[in-house]
Write a protein that binds this DNA or RNA. Structure first.
Length: 425
RNA sequence: GGAGAAGUGGCAGAGUGGUCGAAUGCACCGGUCUUGAAAACCGGCGUACUGAGAGGUACCGGGGGUUCGAAUCCCUCCUUCUCCGCCA
């Protein structure tokens, strides 16, 4: 959620910068928020004045009662009856205005950073870096879903039987490779100074709101209605919500946390080649990194997180590129996002494996996560997060790119985690 | 799941209808004293909105209600603790 005072003081700038997202609707939402805010504050002042009168009168009645002057007390009661009635009506109007304002504010996405390129589709994303050698594959190289079957690593059909499409069953060396990768990612995060967290995999509505999944993206999450809980779409949600309603000391920042979790996504509306094999799933595994920091250090830390992800991809010996997402591709809560894609040699396409974002104060304003600065005043923190990494597409690229006539070769960096250096039949 | 008890500021803990945003202690910050430290003493010490300021308003687990007035009474939900049951 954008901060109201920023919205007030930089209205035109906000409108202008939101244009990068390619949705003309935001201008009117911003203007509506400004107007509602003004009405709300006027109503607030009016209501406060009335309540002040009421409080004063109540105290006087109290004193009269104490001195035993019942008659005078009753007279005073009668006198403020009218004020009481109108204050109640006014309170109701104030509540309505607050709700409407809140409703509008939650529909306005974060303001894109100056570096974010304008544009509406993924074609407008900027490639800021490409690294690694794209392997030259023979013509009979196979996509990962065929390899997974051939080497008995993943059984997609079995998953359909047990749960449904998008819930694969990993088995044997497939399961071991997955687990090894998780441990490798966690070990890398630990080396970079992140504290490991195992969070709840279901969250309540407040948490969903705090990180921006609710109320807008309700349909993306699995909802357990019986208990009103949501299956997490990413560990970002529970981990960032650790800091909901928290005031940190300046010297406690930055906070660096990481965590492994399964991720559940309904992915309503996806179809075609995008969902083949491991490309898009309802349940997948991921290691997430999260930082909570002072505003002035967040862009430095964003670079640090980007380097962290690059380091991992380098060790996995996967060719990758880094994209700076355009306004139209930027997620709702993000100010700037860098996507990492690895090249999947047999599918001959780039697959997104990580997304690193700075949310600035957009999430912290919802979370009410602040820190106490130099002059004892509180200020909102910046929040950042990134995948490091999402498992399925890493797995897909690894087995496709490393397939040979005699099996699938495991990159050296993870051999200590797998306990084997090759997958064969 | 059943029965009972309880939820107050960073922590501990008073307060059961009326100058209570809340005693007191600890912690913390500033000062006096001291060569320095400790002790002692003095002062400060929740969050948010609003106002140029003085100040005003809201918040005592969440929500609702009674009342001129609620931390205090009522309803409801949540959480914690104790006992019983069940269980990885």
């Amino acid at each position: 959620m954008l901060q109201l005072n920023f919205l007030r003081e930089h209205t035109q700038e906000v409108i202008h910068r939101l244009e990068k997202r390619g949705n003309s609707n935001y201008k009117s939402l911003v203007e509506e928020a400004i107007e509602l805010d003004k009405q709300k504050r006027d109503k607030q002042a009016e209501t406060d004045g009335l309540l002040s009168e009421l409080n004063k009168a109540s105290k006087e009645i109290g004193m009269l009662m104490k001195s035993g002057d019942r008659k005078a007390a009753d007279a005073a009661k009668a006198k403020i009856a009218e004020i009481k009635t109108s204050s109640q009506a006014m309170k109701q109007e104030l509540t309505d205005l607050e709700l409407r304002l809140h409703g509008v504010l939650t529909q306005i996405p974060n303001v894109p950073h100056a570096l974010v390129p304008p544009g509406s589709t993924e074609d407008d994303n900027q490639v800021v870096e490409t690294a690694g050698e794209i392997p030259v594959m023979s013509n009979d190289s196979k996509p990962h879903w065929e390899l997974a079957d051939e080497y008995n690593l993943i059984d997609f059909q079995l998953g359909v039987k047990i749960a449904g499409a998008g819930f694969p069953v990993y088995r044997g060396k497939g399961a071991k490779l997955q687990r090894a990768l998780i441990n490798f990612f966690l070990a890398e995060a630990e080396k970079s100074g992140y504290e490991e967290i195992i969070p709840p995999f279901l969250v309540n509505e407040d948490s969903g709101f705090g990180t921006g999944q609710l109320p807008d993206k309700e349909g993306q999450m699995y909802h357990v209605t019986e208990d009103d809980l949501y299956l997490i779409p990413t560990a970002e949600v529970p981990i960032t919500n650790i800091y909901r309603d928290v005031i940190l000391k300046a010297d406690e920042l930055p906070q660096k946390l990481c965590g492994y979790s399964p991720c559940f996504r309904r992915e309503a509306g996806s179809y075609g080649k995008d969902v083949r094999g491991l490309n898009r799933l309802h349940q997948f595994e991921k290691v997430e990194i999260v930082q909570i920091c002072k505003p002035e250090e967040s862009y430095g830390l964003l670079d640090e997180m980007i380097s962290h992800v690059k380091g991992i991809l380098g060790k996995l010996e996967l060719p990758y590129r880094v994209l700076r997402l355009c306004g139209g591709d930027l997620s709702f809560a993000s100010a700037i996002t860098y996507d990492f894609e690895v090249y999947s040699a047999a599918q001959k396409r780039w697959l997104e494996v990580s997304s690193v974002s700075n949310f600035e104060t957009y999430q912290s304003n919802r979370l009410k996560c602040r820190f106490r600065g130099e002059e004892k005043k509180t200020a909102l923190v910046h929040t950042l997060n990134g995948s490091a990494m999402a498992l399925p597409r890493i797995m897909a690229a690894l087995i496709e790119n490393n397939q040979t006539e005699n099996g699938i070769v495991i990159p050296e960096a993870i051999q200590t985690f797998t306990g084997f250096d090759k997958i064969d039949k």
